[in-house]
Computed example of a mutant assay.
Amino acid sequence: MSEKPEATAPQYKVVRAQGTWKGRYRTDLSVRDFSFVTAEPEKLGGTNEGPTPMEYVIGALNGCLSVVIEMVAREMDFRLEGLEIRSEGLVDQRGLFGTADVSPHFQSVDIHAAFVTDEPPERLEALQAAVLKRCPVYNLIKDSGAEVRLHWEIRSGVKQG
Rank of each mutant, 00 (worst) to 15 (best):
S2Y: 09
E3Y: 14
K4P: 08
E6M: 13
Q18R: 14
G19W: 07
G23E: 04
R24G: 09
Y25T: 08
R26A: 14
T27S: 15
D28C: 11
L29R: 03
L29V: 10
L29I: 12
L29P: 06
R32Q: 07
F34Y: 14
V37N: 09
V37W: 07
E40V: 01
E42W: 05
K43W: 11
G45I: 03
T47W: 08
N48W: 12
N48S: 15
N48K: 12
E49R: 02
E49A: 02
E49Q: 04
G50D: 10
P53S: 13
I58L: 03
I58M: 02
G59T: 13
A60F: 01
A60N: 03
N62A: 13
G63L: 06
L65M: 14
V68H: 00
R74Q: 15
F78Y: 15
E81M: 07
G82H: 09
L83I: 08
L83K: 05
S87V: 01
G89E: 06
G89K: 04
G89W: 05
D92M: 02
Q93P: 06
R94A: 12
G95N: 03
A100T: 07
D101Q: 12
S103N: 04
S108I: 13
I111D: 01
A113E: 00
A114H: 09
A114T: 14
F115T: 00
V116W: 05
V116M: 05
E119K: 01
E119P: 01
E122Q: 00
L124K: 01
A126P: 05
A126W: 03
A129G: 07
P136Y: 03
P136H: 06
N139H: 10
S144Q: 02
S144W: 02
G145F: 12
E147N: 10
L150V: 05
I154G: 00
R155K: 14
S156C: 05
S156M: 04
G157P: 01
V158T: 13
K159W: 08
G161A: 11
G161N: 11
G161W: 06
